[in-house]
Nucleic acid binder design. Structure first.
Lengths: 248, 248
DNA sequence: CGGGGGATTGACGTAGCTCAACCCGAGTGG
DNA sequence: CCACTCGGGTTGAGCTACGTCAATCCCCCG
């Protein structure tokens, strides 16, 4: 009665068999911001040191505290970067998609991972050792510059997050987070934008520094206002401008 | 009564005349992480494109929103990086010291400054245009690598901050912030560590995402517990371990 | 000595956390 | 194929950390 929530999830069940075939994945990686700017020959040489590996959904890739020995680039799927806190809660720093990298990049010169990386969907990861990566950096200045730009961009986003969490209420943060995700991984669907990844209230809470309950309340609020639609592990945006108004 | 607070501030009145002499400052900059790894000849060449400029205490260096045209390195003094929020409060992202850089580094590829930079003490800044800086990056790979390492380090610190602000109470954040500052700019003094920079409650509040009043209460608490001593615009740490216990 | 900007402290309001009950849709095994 | 279970989601009722507002204090300056 009154509110009808879409109950038949036209879900983003991205369960393609993800062959993780080396050649296929490598071809796609040539496009990654990381390797942009390399000639074909160089690209071939650089990619040669990367080894592919498949992770099933929710599999841990590495834990915080573990020795940081590899640099990884996502060929397919999504990876969640989180910091476990003393009291057992998680602070999600980012959810990365294809072409994005993690591992000993952000932790250059750091011996241990500060963050836990988990396969947020099943995914295929190309990775190499820190040593090999460092050799690439010194040997191919273009890669070093690309890396610099990538890290600088992330730093900017982190600053955004700090501002959000320090100065704005939960409602605002949730709206902003949804918009960010929609820009990154949204596809038009019906009269809205479907965020193409599994996204639970818990995820959203961990990304905004709030609790599941509060996020749930905020989302209900948004739904009643016709801003979003959501279900078990998915979220779609109905009224982008409305959300943007709340996000500021 | 009972509590005696040090009322005679053996202040860090770093009001050396800061001549900002080019040669003197340049000599010191050779040590900056940025230019480490450059040979003498190269260093000379690189430094040549930097122009020095002096800023009095509290002078604005650039405002958020302004076009990002320069990269700056601090020769002497301290610079406060802050984001002004919609509702007029400031979120302080960092306070930088000699040898550290700001400007179009974190904003590589970004046209406008996201942050306001202010002279937190009087200071001397060497700066160059983004164009010249970019030329340096491509021409001297060592600088690009150093920059990468610097930005990666900052990213890590930003992640620390996000964790703090998302998951821990104000008390905890203030303690952690004090420790961070002490490590960076602390000098042993009497039975404690004096933080060598002017540091108001407002600054601390803006760094921790809290209000002046709350920070003041927390600091009073700390003082009563014998952890810190503080006055008008300065702070000293009496019991490092005690603070560390609170910071976790 | 008087003024002013920072700091302190108190009283009060509230956003968001905690605890707890309940619901619902999707697997799963009988 | 149905019943059970179980993991997520929702909702409510308190509680508390922290923000807000306001008064007062205390250096430090002219």
């Amino acid at each position: 009665m009154g509110e009808r929530r879409r109950t038949s999830p036209v879900e983003p069940v991205t369960i393609s068999p993800l062959s993780c075939s080396i050649d296929e994945q490598r071809r796609r990686l040539g496009q990654a911001p990381f390797f942009r700017g390399l000639g074909d020959a160089d690209l071939e040489e650089v990619l040669a040191v990367f080894a592919p590996r498949h992770y099933p959904d929710s599999a841990p890739i590495h834990h915080a505290g573990a020795e940081a020995t590899r640099l990884s680039v996502i060929a397919a799927g999504m990876v969640k970067l989180a910091r476990p806190t003393r009291d057992g809660q998680d602070v999600v720093l980012d959810i990365l998609g294809p072409g994005e990298s993690f591992g000993s990049l952000a932790e250059l010169g750091d011996a241990a991972h500060r963050e836990t990386a988990t396969a947020h969907t099943q995914c295929c990861i190309l990775s190499t050792t820190s040593g090999a990566f460092h050799r690439i950096l010194t040997h191919y200045p273009a890669v070093a510059l690309a890396a610099l730009e990538i890290v600088a961009g992330r730093l900017r986003e982190s600053h955004d997050t700090i501002e959000q969490v320090s100065a704005y209420p939960v409602e605002h943060r949730v709206a902003a987070t949804l918009l960010k995700l929609a820009d990154r991984a949204g596809t038009p669907e019906g009269a809205g934008i479907l965020i193409e990844m599994p996204l639970s209230r818990q995820d959203l809470a961990d990304m905004t520094g709030a609790t599941v309950e509060t996020v749930s309340r905020v989302m209900s609020e948004f739904r009643r206002a016709g801003l979003v639609e959501s279900g078990r592990r998915w979220i779609a945006i109905r009224d982008r401008d409305g959300l943007a108004a709340i996000a500021g």
